[in-house]
Amino acid sequence: MPLASPGSLMFLAAALLWPPATRRWALLPLAMAYGWAWTQGGIEPAALAWPALLVLAAVLARPALAPAARGAGHTLFLILAVLLFLHWLPGFHNTLVIPRAALTPDAVPFAMYLNLDKPLVAFWVVLMAAPAMAGASARATLMAALAACAGAIVVCLGGGLALGVVGWAPKWPDSGWLWLLNNALLVTLAEEALFRGYVQERLARCWRDRAWGATAALLIAAVLFGLAHYAGGWQWMLLAGVAGVAYGLAYRHGGLAAAVLAHLGLNAAHYALFTYPMRAALQ
């Protein structure tokens, strides 16, 4: 992917979401990325309807409005989030940046697209729902991320070896740095924003007066995260659900940054050291 491309602006927009001082400016490079993609055929006019509906969802979901309006806003957001994650909304032509190929002889062929649709979910959650972006301190955030990442690597990748869905396959393709940048700034941020920053956070708030509330919220978000990996079969749904528990714990103790770092660490270990995305024998 060339440095001068809509993707570079998407990366910049996502990076600006993190520091509080720059967060409100994140929509500027996002809008510029969309404008640039328009000139290159990456989006059609129909695609502009979905950010507009996300804005409507944000307006309706404001705490000052009546419960019925807030409910409508959150329902609209959830419908759009699911459809954006599944790439089912028309108007987007996401750019293929890593051509389809098997990274190792035993692997299912892998391709990577620069998504213009799915990352919109992260922008809505961070700017509208305002989840905790970090823990009580930088040390707390980092420790939560490291503990969750280490646990997820041992259990999930170890479980993947035991189930036969991955094998030991150390590598670092030439496109690895682009994969890492995209995973860090767009993929893991979007997924953790939805499942931890929105689902887990909102359920925990709803059940904050219940002794079991925080745990139930974490587990429900983890189960939904596992179900979102249905395309990989029951093995990946199981492993993703377990990983979701680790990310949920990271979020509880270190905010969204810890969850994203834990998720990125597991994904990077999977990509660099094991069959990626999975063994072809399972297909």
Rank of each mutant, 00 (worst) to 15 (best):
D174R: 14
R23E: 01
L114R: 03
R23Q: 13
A140C: 08
Y198N: 06
G73L: 06
G254H: 03
I98M: 11
L65S: 06
E201Q: 15
Y251V: 03
F123Q: 04
F225W: 11
R205Q: 13
A69R: 13
A136G: 11
F77E: 04
W50F: 10
Y276E: 11
A66W: 05
I79D: 00
W172T: 05
V125K: 03
T104I: 01
L83E: 05
L163M: 14
L181G: 15
A144C: 08
E191R: 03
A66K: 07
L56T: 06
L238H: 08
L17S: 04
A26G: 12
A68Q: 09
V126F: 05
M112V: 10
A193Q: 02
M112K: 07
G233I: 13
Y247R: 09
C149V: 06
P109A: 13
A140G: 13
A4V: 15
L76C: 07
M1V: 02
V154M: 03
A281P: 01
T215S: 11
G159F: 01
R205Y: 02
L239Y: 09
P170F: 03
L28Y: 12
I153Y: 05
T215I: 09
L224T: 04
N183H: 13
L65T: 00
Q283D: 11
R139L: 14
G176E: 04
R139Q: 14
K171C: 01
A257Y: 07
L30R: 09
F274W: 07
M112R: 09
A184N: 02
A243Y: 04
L83I: 07
Y198P: 02
R100Q: 12
N182Q: 15
V187W: 07
L239E: 00
A145H: 05
H93G: 02
G255V: 13
I98K: 06
T188P: 07
P20T: 05
A228L: 11
A130T: 14
